[in-house]
Amino acid sequence: MVGVVTAVFFLLRIVPGDPASMILGDRATPQAVAELRERLGLDAPLWQQYTEFVMRIFTHGDTGDSLVTGVATGDLIWSRAPVSLGIVAFALAIALLITVPLALAAVQRKDGWIDHAVRILPSISMGMPLFWIGLLLIIVFAVNLGWFPVGGVASGGGPFEWIRSLFLPSLSVALGMAPPLIRSLRAQLLEVTEAEFVTTLRAARVSERRIRFNHVLRGAALPTLNLLSVNLAYLIGGTLVVEKVFGINGLGTLLFQSISSRDFPVVQGVALYCAVLVVLVTLVAQVLSALIDPRLRRVQ
């Protein structure tokens, strides 16, 4: 988190462009620009700006007030975070619903046409950009079939309409995230299936269904869970991009608007909260790994 926040702070100031000039416009006088820079604290040395920035995080829990609107970044982010977190949660659930059945079907029919299809199709989808997947889903399911809204988030109609409006964006992110998970889980399932303890269970006449779900899937889930936590940054980044495609007023739209207007505190705030989310989900993944594999709970 410290590394992300520090890198974003200095990289934003390296990129050409002055926030004061962008706020006032091209016709602003140099004196007006200088006065605004002084009022916003942009004329202070970088080390002083960084110190004030870090102190603001510890004292107020945000990265300062927006240079454009004057609203605290925490308020701006929390007003849009539920939509983005909803897309992340739905995309994660959809990715798991895609990954587990396809990997199990491929292993059950190893070297059959289903196994070949499961190996080929994810490889093709890995080369598709998320925004292109989103546009295809809009054309097919929103424009042609009319099953889902073209964009935006429904403000009325209850939870069902809210979920319905977030389904296509979540599916776009899930389709981009699922291929490496499918390949990883399939490989681990094949490895565990060929293990000696599985042969012993079959010799003991344990049902294939119980072996597959109680033993094989549990043993193969750990590497895939670790891969899922590593790919969380891709999931969050994909969510921010997809929001722009579907016209959703979430953190992604806020981030792109803030980058365009050189609104340093808001960009830093979004980066900070995304870093916090990555750390928290990684911690949850480690806890789940310990629950799945008791050996990880042993004190070395």
Rank of each mutant, 00 (worst) to 15 (best):
V2D: 06
G3E: 08
G3R: 07
V8M: 12
I14D: 01
I14A: 12
V15S: 01
A20G: 13
I23A: 08
G25K: 01
D26M: 03
T29H: 09
A32D: 13
V33C: 01
E35L: 06
L36I: 00
L40N: 02
L42H: 01
D43C: 00
L46H: 06
W47I: 11
W47E: 11
Q49P: 09
Q49H: 08
V54M: 15
R56T: 15
D62I: 12
D62M: 10
T63N: 04
T63I: 07
D65I: 12
S66D: 06
S66Q: 07
V68M: 06
T69Q: 13
G70D: 08
A72Y: 13
T73D: 10
G74S: 09
D75K: 14
D75H: 15
D75P: 07
L76I: 03
I77C: 00
W78I: 13
A81P: 05
A81D: 02
A81K: 05
P82A: 02
V83G: 00
L85G: 00
V88R: 07
A89N: 04
A91E: 09
A93G: 10
A95N: 03
A95Y: 05
A95C: 10
I98C: 08
I98W: 10
L102T: 12
L102S: 13
L102D: 12
L104V: 14
A105P: 00
A106W: 11
A106F: 10
V107D: 09
R109Y: 14
K110N: 04
G112P: 06
G112H: 08
I114E: 09
I114S: 07
A117F: 15
V118M: 08
V118L: 11
R119D: 10
I120D: 06
I120A: 15
I120L: 15
I120N: 14
M126T: 10
G127N: 05
F131R: 11
I133D: 07
L135D: 10
I139W: 03
A142H: 03
N144E: 15
W147K: 04
P149H: 05
G156M: 04
P159N: 06
W162D: 04
W162I: 13
S165T: 11
L166E: 04
L166M: 14
L166W: 13
L175R: 13
L175Y: 13
A178E: 02
A178Q: 15
P179N: 07
L181S: 12
L181R: 10
L181K: 04
I182K: 08
S184T: 10
R186N: 01
A187V: 03
A187G: 14
Q188I: 01
Q188D: 12
E191G: 03
V192Q: 07
T193C: 00
A195T: 02
V198I: 14
L201F: 09
R205E: 12
E208A: 14
R212N: 09
V216G: 01
L222Q: 11
T224C: 06
N226E: 09
L227I: 12
L228H: 04
N231K: 06
L232P: 00
Y234W: 03
Y234C: 01
L235R: 11
I236F: 12
I236T: 11
L240W: 13
V241L: 14
V242F: 03
V242K: 09
I248V: 15
L251T: 02
F256L: 07
Q257D: 09
S258D: 07
D263C: 00
F264K: 05
V267A: 05
Q268W: 11
V270S: 00
A271P: 00
L272A: 05
Y273H: 01
V284Q: 02
V287A: 05
D293G: 00
R295M: 02
L296D: 10
